[in-house]
Amino acid sequence: MLDTIDMLEAIGSDASLRYASTVELTTVLEQAKASDALTAAAITGDASHLAQEFGSRRMYDPQATQSFFSADQTPFS
């Protein structure tokens, strides 16, 4: 049986699922017995529902600043 990450991978890699309508995708997920969190996320397009299942953890955007390494090495130190 597929879990949520398996299902997300399947949706992401299948042309029909990736661009299915919300109704179509919800039907597929219900048939596959997807978790409530994933179904809610798919219906709303809001990934925050998945925090119920995976917890919420602050993720920084890696490599957010480059300018200080470009023209001069230590402009602000």
Binding site: I5, E9, M59
Partner: peptide, 25 residues
Amino acid sequence: GLSDNIVEQWLQRMNADVRSLQPYY
């Protein structure tokens, strides 16, 4: 060095030794 917690967990299925760089921020 990933920006999404779930993507990081997906990565953990591909290799047994995944070390997140996030804690260094």
